[in-house]
Every structure is written in C-alpha cells, then in structure tokens.
Computed example of a mutant assay.
Amino acid sequence: MESEVKQKFSSYPDHIKPKMEALRKLILEVARSTEGVGELEETLKWGEPAYLPSQTKSGTTVRIDWKSKSPKQIGMYVSCNTSLVRTFRSMFEDELQFEGNRAIVFPVDKPIPKKQLMICIQMAFRYHLDKKQ
C-alpha cells in the first residue's frame, strides 16, 4: 500500500477502518481472481483510495471512501461516464443502495454485501474488455 493510501486509511475513524480494510481486501481479491485484469494500481484519486487495472486497461477505476458528511455510509464509486451503475441497479435493485450514476452505498452498521459487490467489482475491472465483446 502506498504511503498516501496508508495515511488515508489511518485517517478513518476507528469504527470505519475495519470496513474500509475489508472492502480493500475484497477489491484486491476480486482483481487477482478475475481473468484479464492483471495487476492493480492502488493510489488516491480525488482524495479517495482508488484501484485500477494498471497494465491491461481492462476496466475502469473503482474508488472507495467514507465521508464525514455522510457518516452512516461507505461508498464504492465508478466513473459516471460508464453504464455500470445502471447495470448494477438492474441486477441488484432490491439488494443494494445507489447514489446517482456513480456509486453503490451501504450502511456502516451492516455487513458488507460481499457477494453482490464482488460481481460489481469484477464488472468494473472488466468493463472495457466486456464492452468490446
């Protein structure tokens, strides 16, 4: 983990850190197990931890964050220029909450919806590959 990303994670409140670390772990796990993704670049974009397939350009960046202005939720963000959130919404409308056309949000006091997020992360990391097919 890069030092600036490490600093960002250490800045989260104590009750948020485990959720953010679990989400990071899930993202890295999905990237490792998804065909065509390759290595991820982990950095900060817009002050948020960001993960992007660095060598293959197979997909779009996935960002995660907790914000003090919305303290009861964590967000997972993708580019609003993609159709990803619209697709996620059609697949998981009853299971996940969405914010506009750029985010999946989930409550900090509930378990991370791992199964659904794994599918969404995989789709984001393969977005450009799957779009070509």
Rank of each mutant, 00 (worst) to 15 (best):
K19D: 02
T34K: 04
Y77C: 07
K8D: 02
E93F: 14
Y77D: 03
Y51I: 06
G36W: 07
K114V: 15
D109H: 07
G100E: 08
W46A: 03
E41W: 07
A22L: 07
F98N: 10
G36C: 07
P53S: 04
A31Q: 09
S58I: 02
K8F: 01
E39T: 13
P71F: 04
V108A: 05
A50V: 00
I112N: 03
K17T: 15
K57T: 05
C120A: 15
I121Y: 04
E42Y: 05
E93M: 11
M123S: 10
S83L: 14
E29S: 13
R63V: 00
P49I: 04
Q7K: 15
M123A: 14
T82K: 09
E42I: 11
E35T: 14
L28Q: 14
K25H: 03
C80D: 00
E35Q: 14
E42F: 07
M1C: 05
D14T: 15
E99M: 06
G38A: 09
Q73W: 11
A22H: 06
K17A: 09
L129N: 12
E4N: 12
L44Y: 00
V78H: 03
S70N: 13
P53I: 02
G100M: 09
W66L: 11
V85C: 01
P53N: 01
F125R: 10
P18K: 02
K110C: 00
P18E: 04
Q55E: 13
E93N: 14
N81G: 13
V30S: 01
N101E: 11
T56P: 00
W46M: 03
E29L: 01
I121M: 04
R89H: 15
P107R: 12
T60G: 09
Q7E: 15
S90C: 06
A124V: 12
M123P: 06
G36H: 08
L28P: 07
D65W: 07
R63D: 00
I119A: 15
E48R: 10
T61Q: 03
R32F: 05
M76V: 13
L44T: 00
Q55D: 11
M20F: 07
K131Y: 06
K72F: 08
T43M: 10
I27H: 07
P113K: 02
I112R: 03
M76T: 07
D65H: 11
S10N: 15
T87M: 11
L84V: 00
A103V: 09
L96P: 04
M76S: 06
K6C: 06
Q7M: 11
R89F: 13
F9Q: 13
V85L: 02
Q73G: 06
K19H: 11
F98G: 11
R126W: 03
P18T: 03
L52D: 05
S79L: 02
E41Y: 08
G100F: 12
Q116E: 15
V62L: 03
S58L: 04
M91E: 15
L28K: 14
W66T: 11
M123C: 08
M1Y: 02
T43R: 15
Y77M: 12
K67E: 05
F92E: 12
F92K: 14
Q116H: 15
R63Y: 01
V108T: 14
A22I: 03
G38D: 10
I74E: 09
P18M: 05
L23G: 07
K115P: 08
R102D: 00
A124G: 12
V78F: 01
E29N: 10
P53H: 03
E93I: 08
P49N: 02
I64N: 00
H128F: 10
A22E: 14
Q55C: 04
E41C: 02
D109N: 14
K110S: 01
M1K: 06
